[in-house]
């Protein structure tokens, strides 16, 4: 086992252990915090696929987070009202079943990622950042000005969606769902990153000219990674909507994109479990310092500055530096 694998296991064990201990002590609120950390971690894992492994600095991933969230809320609100989501061209009914909601959330955010990625990936560098930001802001303002689903006020649904065989209202059971999906997403990422696709994606990130000379087109690889990334972030958005039983355009705003990016950078860009550590620390700081001062993010900013300047590999990079021999 490599040192990074060990660190990854410790990070996951710490997250899951926190929830279990909190449950045993009857601290339901802490379980919910751990659930939030797991969901943010999932979003970070999704972004890391594009940002860390594909080299695509997207400042628009809130779009996929929010789309996933809105898909969840819209389906749930229609299930509650009994009205179909659409009747033309064929009837789409609402649903409050998570196993039905997740694939839809992933499909819609994947589709959005395909469209946004196909256009954005024609640019690079700072232009890519700006174009992804612009697309996300377009969707944000669309949500703000669309009264059908709450507009500026957002959209509430009062009952958390259900999962067969589980009581999703029980914080620890909902945590179990979110943590399982996080581990699954990590497994999928680990698998594809070691496969030909991951090797080619990483090679094209480090040296695109060389990749082309080897017969590899970076564009298709990046677009595929961008879509997968958007799908994972969309799933996280759906889980987040269910956690709060509420969605609002805030989920789509560029602050959210920035936050997801902070998870990745704090934990370690291009490190599999980096975003998990990053999200957990973010939630921890928010909880510990948020009570002390409304300006806790100043401290977060200092921490981020320290990481970027002195430990560009993030926390995981600090603990498990890259080996010189592979």
């Amino acid at each position: 086992m490599t040192r990074e694998t060990l660190v990854n296991l410790v990070i996951l064990a710490a997250l899951i252990g926190t929830a279990l201990v909190a449950q045993a002590l009857g601290e339901g609120f802490v379980v919910t915090l751990a659930t939030k950390a797991a969901i943010f971690a999932l979003a970070g894992v999704g972004l890391n696929l594009a940002l860390g492994f594909g080299g695509m600095v997207s400042l628009g991933h809130a779009a996929f987070f929010g789309i996933g969230g809105y898909v969840c809320a819209i389906l749930a609100s229609h299930a509650a009202s009994g009205q179909p989501v659409a009747v033309l061209p064929f009837t789409i009914a609402g649903t409050n079943e998570m196993p039905a909601i997740w694939p839809v959330a992933m499909a819609v955010s994947g589709l959005a990622a395909g469209l946004i990625g196909a256009l954005s990936l024609r640019t690079t560098g700072v232009y890519f950042i700006m174009v992804t930001l612009a697309f996300a802001q377009m969707i944000y303002y669309f949500a703000v000005s669309w009264p059908r689903y709450g507009g500026d006020d957002g959209l509430s649904f009062y009952v958390r969606n259900s999962f067969p065989g589980l009581n999703t209202f029980d914080p620890i059971q909902y945590f179990a769902i979110c943590a399982t999906l996080l581990v699954l997403a990590l497994g999928v990422c680990a698998l594809i990153l070691r496969a030909r696709f991951g090797l080619a994606l990483e090679g094209a990130r480090q040296n695109p000219a060389r990749a082309q000379a080897l017969g590899i087109r970076p564009y298709g690889l990046r677009l595929t990674a961008f879509v997968l990334s958007g799908m994972i972030v969309g799933l996280a958005g759906a889980l987040y909507a269910d956690l709060n039983r509420f969605v609002s355009p805030a989920m789509l705003s560029w602050h959210m994109s920035g936050e997801i990016m902070v998870f990745v950078i704090l934990g370690g860009v291009g490190r599999l479990c980096g975003p998990v550590a990053g999200a957990a620390i973010y939630i921890l700081l928010e909880h510990l310092l948020g009570g002390v001062s409304d300006y806790w993010q100043v401290l977060l900013g200092l921490l981020l500055l320290g990481i970027v300047l002195f430990a560009p590999g993030g926390l995981v990079g600090l603990i498990a530096p890259r080996r010189r021999h592979v």
Partner: peptide, 16 residues
């Protein structure tokens, strides 16, 4: 990476 590129089959997602 070069062998994979030459094979033209880089869209494989599961086998290490």
């Amino acid at each position: 990476l070069a062998v994979a590129g030459a094979s033209g089959r880089i869209y494989q997602f599961h086998r290490p």
